[in-house]
Design a protein around this nucleic acid. Structure first.
Lengths: 407, 407
DNA sequence: CCGTATTTGTCAGCTTTCTTGACAAAGCAA
DNA sequence: TTGCTTTGTCAAGAAAGCTGACAAATACGG
């Protein structure tokens, strides 16, 4: 039930039908590989004669591969098809305050090599350092033309029309054109995206196995230095009119609550970000912006707090549980606003899920309206799954598999 | 960049291309009528030979009409096309606590007749009363087969797969199948929808003139007995996984704020609903659920408070301004969450926009992150424009003009 | 070992639609 | 009236889905 915008529409041409069906075939292979042409035809409820030319075209384009012949109870054995992924590579880059990770991965998300560097203070230095390492990685592990592009994930707002990094508060960078700078340095297409959005994309495009259902509507919430969300509605990431959607970290829990780095008070982030967790453990109040510096001076991390809680430190345990409650209260706001099919929770604190789960779910149920909303599945994603890097890879992979936009 | 769901996709058939283009033609005529075939071809960047058969098909289906021949600087004069709307009718019904409005309208939203009735206490009685009046209206004003369907707008949550009214707290109705009951009574298709969603649809499909731009991403917020939002992203209404999206009224402003009818405390609704405005004027606190009954006993309405403010009552004025501030704080949450291109504000209090505008915008700017977000246009919609009824009509009209879903 | 049944993949002919180019109809101006 | 321009239509060609038939490949039973 989408409205056609009479000022910005996409007419269907002679090849549109084929474009759509070819993309469907590609996605079916991706989902069910290995799969035969006959199986594809059955899934698409179409004659086998339609599938053959579509598959041939995809093979010609280098998107699919014919594999071994499979088994069949009787009759001729099928030729099985795969997505060609092992020799189509992406460079995924995750820029964070402390460090920048680089991963060379194939189209299925499998890592071929990774590198780590301390994030330079200046963006120009980062581009230079990245260009050097990326070229080195590609020389060592990739044949010519195998790398399809670079995905760059940053902790901040990105203008998707230009690819500029508009504002990255944790890094202290404003209005930097990382994308084109890196593009010029390595001569490969570069896609830049906000971290929470990238994590949502990782769920959508790089999900491993948990393809249970309802991929078309969910939220990915990251609790880190800041708190942000990537929102997916109808199989589409919601970026907002000026790429500023998903800033759930700054909805209020209490108008006169703790000070937030954004300048307001009582933001969800001020209750649930990593500094907030540490401050709670230390018994400090984040009453002013200076208090953040004090907390940082303690050198404690959320991982430390979790470790102490597990070691029997009741103060740590209490701090985590209180944080869990605030997390749930904010998640309830997301559920009330968007009613997603599920919410994925990422960030350091996800590692303490067993300690906070009860508090999160209780608070979520407390402030939601319907039973169904209260029962929205909340799924923790431990930090070691490298969602951000997989999201960076998804930036390159997704356009290849996405539906053509029509209408 | 939508992902194709490999479990629930829509294959393109031989006729898909034409289906898409025919719908584009239909929407172009709707937007730019009167318009000639040649003009359509130019707008679609296509040969005139393509447009002719599409138009002919639409005329055959009774969706378009050929009108007078138009003017042209030189050369043959064009035949102008219109959407056939004057003899395609809808019955729009708006159910509210105090009264139920019925409107017989054509496809352009023009009202042919309206009726008013007191909303019965029982849903069965409502269906009976509606069936009677609707039949009377159609007998009086419509020829056979002219009415294409009935749009029913209710103040509560609706399950869109079944059309059941799940929960309407203000009416006190739970799990009522209004749709099929009315369908059986009048033998016309009935579409049921939540009020805020319907208002958003009215903006999208029944907008009059304000077709300036960016219709594809906005929010419609209604301030009434409750507070709710209809969200549009990418030309699509967001209904959520279980049709519970848009309940922004129950995001918190303060965890220990006034009591809300939902059972929580400090919901946005508890600060900005009609009862909250009256309570603020009376100097009462909505500290308990009983206080709502007390406020109702005063028999004051928001319209009264506005009238008194205009008459010089400073207490009324202060109450409205304070409400405006809370409205802005909540709108900021919507902006942070979704970053819509604009926000439309409806409900009784929209009539006092000149009194509260400053407070709303100030509070909005205070809690948003970027300048662009702070500058999100907020547009009041005075209540007499009958947005809810136009939204009810849109429930019938929209499916005719919507894009076919493919991929 | 051979014929039958079954499944896979392909292909030729048909229909439908976009695409292209030509043409008649309709009107204005000189 | 002639020439020019614009509109709307139409026929022929190209591209893609659709249909039905057929060869290839394999298992099974005798």
């Amino acid at each position: 039930m989408r409205k056609i915008d009479p000022r910005k529409f996409q007419r269907a041409t002679r090849t549109t039908t084929k474009d759509i069906n070819r993309q469907i075939v590609l996605n079916l292979v991706r989902e069910y590989q290995p799969i035969s042409r006959a199986d594809l035809a059955r899934r698409m409820e179409v004659a086998r004669g339609i599938v053959t030319p579509l598959v041939n075209e995809l093979i010609e384009q280098g998107l699919l591969l014919e594999g071994a012949t499979g088994a069949s109870p009787r009759g001729r054995k099928p030729t099985l098809l795969h997505v060609r992924s092992h020799d189509r590579l992406t460079v995924a880059v995750d820029v964070r305050l402390s460090e920048t990770q680089i991963m060379l991965a194939d189209f299925s998300g499998r890592a071929l090599a990774t590198e780590l560097l301390a994030t330079p203070a200046k963006p120009e230095a980062l581009v230079q350092a990245l260009a050097l390492r990326i070229r080195r990685l590609l020389d060592a592990h990739a044949a010519d033309g195998e790398c399809q592009g670079i995905g760059l994930v940053v902790p901040g707002m990105v203008d998707r029309t230009t690819g500029r990094l508009v504002n990255a508060p944790t890094l202290g960078w404003r209005d930097v054109d990382l994308g084109t700078a890196l593009e010029e340095a390595v001569e490969l297409p570069v896609h830049v995206e906000r971290d929470a959005v990238a994590c949502a994309l990782a769920q959508m495009w790089m999900g491993q196995g948990n393809t249970d259902s309802s991929q078309d509507s969910y939220a990915y919430v990251t609790f880190s230095d800041g708190v942000g969300a990537g929102i997916v509605v109808g199989g589409n990431v919601v970026r907002g009119h000026r790429d500023a959607a998903g800033e759930f970290g700054h909805i209020p829990l209490s108008l006169d609550g703790p000070a937030c780095l954004c300048g307001s008070r009582g933001c969800w982030e001020a209750y649930t970000s990593n500094p907030a967790v540490v401050a709670r453990y230390l018994g400090r109040e984040l009453s002013t912006r200076e208090s953040y510096a004090e907390v940082r001076k303690s050198r404690l991390t959320v991982a430390d707090v979790i470790a102490r809680a597990r070691a029997g430190d009741t103060a740590a345990r209490t701090a985590l549980e209180a944080t869990g409650r605030y997390m749930g209260l904010g998640l309830a706001a997301i559920v009330n606003a968007l009613n997603p099919a599920r919410i994925v929770v990422g960030g350091e604190i996800a590692a303490a899920w067993d300690l906070i789960r009860l508090q999160v779910l209780e608070a979520l149920a407390e402030r939601t309206l319907t039973q169904g909303a209260a029962a929205t599945p909340v799924i923790p994603e431990p930090h070691d799954e490298q969602t951000r890097l997989r999201g960076a890879a998804a930036l390159v992979v997704a356009p290849v598999f996405a539906a053509p936009n029509i209408g």
